[in-house]
């Protein structure tokens, strides 16, 4: 990152609003959020429930669209992309980790890890080798053929982490990744995320747990649909 040029942020959102229609009422969840996240940052999004932090994460992950405002990802305006194009960007640049793991119950750990590769143009053979490698990295080499129900919560979240990394994303988005785990397991997961971040992957974690937020180098507080760059 040295040199005369200012590094371009990986994420730049400008005056993003998100309005939901509930019955006859318009509810404004995000009230004009502007935010930059640089390549390789480790950011915690914190705030009370209903503050809009999950909505912000979904918009960052292209799972939701802002009602107005601009979202630039890696220098490209992605807010106006078609559904197919957004899916492609999501598959290639973004990895998700969720509170409830969200593994597909009827396929093996290995096939779960391979799932994002299914929709990317990468070679199946290479993806498979990489999936095995990633499961090794999260300490589950001996569990590749297990179904999610045969794994503990911590193991499931590690499978989910490996899955998030299979397409080598630029940004890892985690929504309360330790919300269902005990503190020891939470530490293991967050240590893994730190290790991933230290390889250059941007990590954004939504959490209300102090111990989890402590791993981040920058905290963003979301309150009542606005951000406070703390």
């Amino acid at each position: 990152m040295s040199g005369a040029q200012t590094p371009r942020p990986l994420v730049r959102i400008t005056d993003v609003r998100r309005v939901y229609r509930q019955g006859d009422l318009d509810v404004e969840i995000l009230k004009g959020v502007s935010l930059d996240i640089g390549q390789g940052e480790f950011v915690a999004l914190q705030g009370p429930s209903g503050s809009g932090k999950s909505t912000l994460l979904h918009i960052l992950g292209l799972l939701d669209r802002p009602t107005s405002g601009i979202y630039e990802l890696d220098g490209r305006d992605v807010s106006g992309l078609s559904d197919d194009e957004q899916s492609e960007v999501r598959g290639q640049l973004i990895g998700f980790v969720f509170q409830s793991f969200y593994l597909i119950p009827y396929i093996t750990a290995l096939d779960n890890v391979l799932l994002p590769a299914l929709y990317s143009p990468a070679q199946t053979g290479e993806a498979r080798a990489r999936a095995v490698e990633l499961l090794g990295l999260v300490g589950l080499s001996d569990r590749t053929d297990f179904k999610p129900t045969q794994l503990s919560g911590g193991q499931q979240q590690r499978v989910a982490l490996a899955r998030a990394l299979i397409n080598a994303p630029r940004m890892l988005l985690a929504d309360e990744p330790t919300g269902q785990l005990d503190s020891a397991t939470s530490r293991e997961i967050m240590d893994l995320m730190s290790a991933i971040n230290s390889q250059g992957t941007t990590v954004v974690v939504v959490t209300h747990e102090e111990a989890t937020a402590a791993y981040a180098r920058r905290r963003i507080i979301v309150a009542d649909g606005r951000v406070d760059h703390g």
């Binding site: 992950g61 197919d84 598959g91 998700f96 799932l115 929709y119 990317s120």
Partner: peptide, 16 residues
């Protein structure tokens, strides 16, 4: 539905 959501989150376009 959840499986569909997971697939969508990990890059599956609607047509897939």
């Amino acid at each position: 539905a959840q499986e569909i959501g997971i697939r969508r989150a990990f890059g599956a376009p609607a047509w897939a």
